[in-house]
Design a binder for these strands. Structure first.
Lengths: 332, 332
DNA sequence: CTAATAGTGTCTTTGAGACAATATGGA
DNA sequence: TCCATATTGTCTCAAAGACACTATTAG
């Protein structure tokens, strides 16, 4: 149904559709506002960040919220609206925006999610390479990339301790669905001691809590989000974690050229757990179409020494076969 | 954003939010109608069917469309609206509805998808056991379960020859995303000859085209769908195919108790390809929490003989580990 | 009685993961 | 020099898939 039932006006003449449409009065349907909200993720200094804006208006004035805005009725598609809002908020031009992955995340329409009126928001998820500092667009006081570790997303760090995440579906957190993988992260024992002397915390890794994403010991108070945006961000993170398992989208967080170690850093940051460098390396190169060598090598070795790594660019594959499954899934 | 920007009214008094909300005029936002549409799938006689209604009003009068309707602004959530519409259209009571799996599929908002006005629809996907015949609710002329093989969904049978399907994401067909798996089905060679004398076409299997879902040799003209509903159904099928890989949701198509062969029938019908009976059997029983034995056995053996199969019910797992991956994914 | 079906066993191949080993270059 | 890092090699185990085999029962 796209809407015909119980509300049509001017359904008198039985001629052709054009006559009907001309006589149609579009003001007979229930009043719901439609917005798009963007969960834009990027990596900064090895930590996952979300783009947030500080609200300048009521309600939730002064609270951080997802960037977004109204869909221009009849003028743009949902996808276009999301791209427009993202561009406005980040100040990105079309060229930069091309390198950003944007996909629909899901829609949220609890009756009272906005105290002012019924609002349905279509959430989008974006993966971006390290972008210039955000500028506050619209009437937001400020816009900034905030580490996800600083957000209050639910019971735990990432707000996923009672919900069943998703291999990619949309509304999966709301029913018995469950997507891919994603048992409660907290319930999954992290390999705390993994044999002596292994690159568990080496390299450009991130300070991590037992939960994953790094709030550092001096962690300030967790940031609450406006509306139901904490939930949306949590869903976005779930989706992102699942998505990089089966798609090469982890490369969307990096520049045109990257090393295998940098790619591994993306996975470690998004999943919040260290990966075995050697196995990861072999695995990435073995998946057809994931990455392809540029022939060049990095200008210098690792931070604390080591050979210069080879450079790669994203390959042509749209899906990873076989997939890079997250570790720690063994029930037993 | 849930909506504050560029449109707030009565933002004068700087008091508390309640005063602001009281003065707020909700009629300042763009006019978009919000509907829910349901892609309800079920198995009848071993073939996948979708619930459709014949439109009684313009436009597309007389054309088949997805069941759905307007969201009651401010009164119900999107999920609730979807459940309500599904109940109305199928005539199902709450008890029956409990056995139906319902999840959000994605939102569709092309500016001109409805010629009358801007309409955003939030599509839902439902998996149902074989239900009684549908009754035409609302102002639809008729409602019926239609074999998906009869639908005109795109280039091919299932309309998936140029799009990149999804392991579960929502808007994945619209960008470079790609979800799980789902290369063009047509491009994936089907094991046409698989050794002599194997249950390839035996049992309760379905007549199949090279594409999968069974249009029979006497196939009538493919049924066009109203609006962009062909696309939505195609997305729903993609999602369903991906979903049963990683979740036990295939059991949602069956009754309380079922045999392994019946479960295999679900996979074969949804995926459109035959599965090896022996391997499937062992696999299903080996995945923890997928099914659990009831202790009973079926009243009689297979259609053409054979031992009485044991009965199972759905287990407690929300996710399948390891997953039941679709066959035929080997690039090479 | 015949043929199809339920359920199990075996074997091969692939892939994941644990470790080991070697070479390289930063501090 | 010292040591972390890049990259490759080896070994083991789990799982998928191809087949074979046995028992059972509808027609």
């Amino acid at each position: 149904m796209t809407g015909t039932e119980r509300r049509g006006k001017g359904v008198g003449a039985d001629g052709d559709d054009s006559a009907f449409l001309a006589a149609y009065d579009p003001r007979g349907f229930p009043a719901i506002a439609v917005t798009v909200d963007i969960v834009a993720l990027t990596l900064r200094g090895g930590a996952l960040h979300v783009l947030l804006v500080e609200r300048g208006g009521r309600p939730f004035r002064g609270t951080w919220a997802l960037p977004g805005g109204f869909v221009r009725a009849g003028q743009e598609s949902l996808d276009a609206a999301a791209a427009r809002e993202l561009a406005e908020e980040t100040g990105l031009d079309a060229a930069h925006l091309e390198r950003v992955h944007l996909e629909q995340l899901g829609s949220y329409g609890e009756p009272a999610r906005d105290p002012r009126m019924p609002v349905v928001t279509v959430a989008y998820l974006a993966f971006a390479p390290d972008l210039p500092e955000a500028r506050g667009g619209g009437d937001a006081t400020a816009a900034a990339w905030i580490p996800v570790s600083r957000l209050a997303l639910g019971a735990h760090q990432d707000g996923r301790t009672d919900r069943t995440p998703a291999r990619g579906s949309t509304a999966e957190d709301r029913d018995r669905t469950a997507g891919t993988s994603g048992e409660p992260d907290a319930a999954r024992p992290r390999p705390s001691q993994q044999g002596p002397g292994h690159g568990i915390d080496g390299g450009d890794s991130v300070p991590r809590t037992p939960d994953g994403t790094a709030p550092g010991p001096d962690a300030p108070a967790p940031l609450p989000l406006a509306f139901d945006h904490a939930r949306i961000v949590a869903d976005g993170l779930d989706r992102a974690r699942a998505k990089i398992e089966y798609t090469p989208l982890a490369t969307a967080f990096l520049g045109e050229e990257f090393t295998v170690a940098e790619l591994r850093g993306v996975y470690e940051s998004v999943w919040g757990s260290p990966l075995h460098a050697g196995n990861f390396h072999r695995k990435v190169l073995s998946v057809p179409g994931f990455v392809e060598p540029t022939g060049a090598t990095a200008a210098r070795g690792g931070a604390r020494g080591g050979p210069r790594a080879r450079l790669y660019r994203a390959g042509g594959a749209a899906l990873l076969h076989p997939a890079l499954l997250r570790p720690g899934r063994d029930a037993s």
